[in-house]
Amino acid sequence: METSTFVYDGDCAFCTSCAEFIERRIPTAARVVPWQFADLEALGLTVAECEEAVQWVGADGSRAAGPDAIAKLLAASGPLWRIAGAGLRIPPVRVAAWPLYRWVARNRHRLPGGTAACSLPQEARERLYGPTGRPTTGA
C-alpha cells in the first residue's frame, strides 16, 4: 500500500459530511473513502470494524480506529492540523476522546447532516434501503 487510507461510513450522512469537510479543509495525502467502496480485505479491515468506528490504515500498515484514527489523519495533514492530531494523542485527551466519540457515533443520526439511516447497522440499512441506499419497494 502506497498511501494511507481513512475509512468512514458512507451510508451515514453525518459521516459523509465530516469526510467532505476533511476533503475540502484538511490537506492530506491520505485517501478518504467510504468503507462500502473500499477493498476491506486489502486494507485488513472487517465490516464490523468499519461499522464500529472510522478506521485508519497507514501506508506502513499501522492501524487505528475512532479518535485514534482521526489523530492519525490529522498527524498526516498540514502543520496546524498536525498540532490538533498531537493534541488528540495526549493521554488525558485521548482517554476523554473515546467516550465522546462513542456518544457521537450513537447519536450521529441526531447531529447536523445526520439521517435516521445513520443510526442503523449496515445489515438493517441494506434491508430497508437496499445496497444502493434507496428505499426498497418490497416485492
Rank of each mutant, 00 (worst) to 15 (best):
V93M: 05
A53D: 08
T5I: 07
V47Y: 09
S77Q: 01
G78V: 13
P135F: 00
E20T: 12
P67A: 12
I83P: 12
L74G: 01
A105C: 00
R134Y: 00
W103P: 06
E123R: 07
A64C: 05
R25W: 13
F37P: 06
I90N: 05
V7G: 10
W98C: 09
T5K: 06
V93P: 03
A139S: 12
A69C: 15
R31A: 13
L43E: 09
S62K: 11
A71T: 08
V33G: 11
G44F: 10
L43Y: 02
D11T: 11
G61W: 14
S62R: 13
G61E: 15
F37G: 14
A64R: 14
A29Q: 15
H109M: 02
R134G: 03
C118F: 02
I70N: 14
A96F: 01
L73P: 08
A96R: 05
A105S: 06
T132Q: 13
Y8A: 11
E123F: 08
D39F: 00
E51C: 11
W103S: 04
Y129T: 11
A139D: 05
A71D: 09
R63E: 08
Y129V: 02
P67V: 01
Q36M: 00
G44L: 03
Q55K: 13
P131F: 11
T136Y: 00
R82I: 04
V95K: 12
L73G: 01
E20Q: 14
D68R: 15
A59Q: 09
